[in-house]
């Protein structure tokens, strides 16, 4: 009996390890910034260069920080969803225009729609590095205390919005 059970057991262990291991996405590196205060920044906004936006201004409300660029192809995929969120007024969306040219960025927003309350400009990606950005687009859910609660690596999808981001936002907005 053991003669047959041992290989079966070994196979099952291997199968479980492979099943879990291969279903992990190596691109989804868990961010160490989750549940940590969002790095502070003061940057000028794309449309109003004279206006400085500080991340502290958003204390007291739940907001999304979406890292985007006009050169980023995947940003185009998620963009209609962001526009939809903004239109529905679910949560204020702020943009971090990452390593981009101001003129092309403005053109891009004209073409695809502008969901952002404000889009701040990070031309050399310094703030991006503070946020651990390594693949654009990335989206952060930041709570009323200014703490990062969720990081979406890669484009926001209908699935991730419905199952993770929007329920989380609702929960965070309910908190004081």
């Amino acid at each position: 009996m053991m003669r047959y059970l041992t290989p079966l057991f070994a196979f099952l262990v291997l199968a479980i390890f492979l099943f879990v291991g291969l279903s992990l996405n190596p691109r989804q590196v868990p961010s160490p910034l989750i549940d940590k205060p969002a790095p502070e920044f003061e940057l000028y906004s794309l449309h109003e260069p004279e206006k400085i936006f500080s991340s502290k201004d958003n204390l007291g409300k739940v907001w999304l920080l979406n890292v985007w660029a006009s050169w980023c192809v995947a940003c185009r995929d998620e963009h209609p969803l962001l526009v939809e969120i903004a239109r529905a007024g679910i949560v204020p969306v702020y943009g971090l225009n990452y390593k981009d040219e101001n003129t092309t960025a403005k053109q891009w927003l004209k073409l695809y729609g502008d969901p952002y309350v404000a889009s701040v400009v990070d031309p050399d990606g310094t703030v991006g590095i503070d946020y651990g950005v390594y693949g654009v687009p990335e989206t952060y859910v930041i709570d009323k205390q200014g703490i990062i609660r969720h990081k979406q690596i890669g484009p926001v999808t209908v699935d991730s919005l419905q199952n993770k981001i929007i329920p989380l936002i609702m929960e965070l907005q309910g908190q004081t």
Partner: peptide
């Protein structure tokens, strides 16, 4: 770097 990108 670890603070921003994790042990990975």
């Amino acid at each position: 770097l670890v603070e921003r990108y994790g042990d990975f």
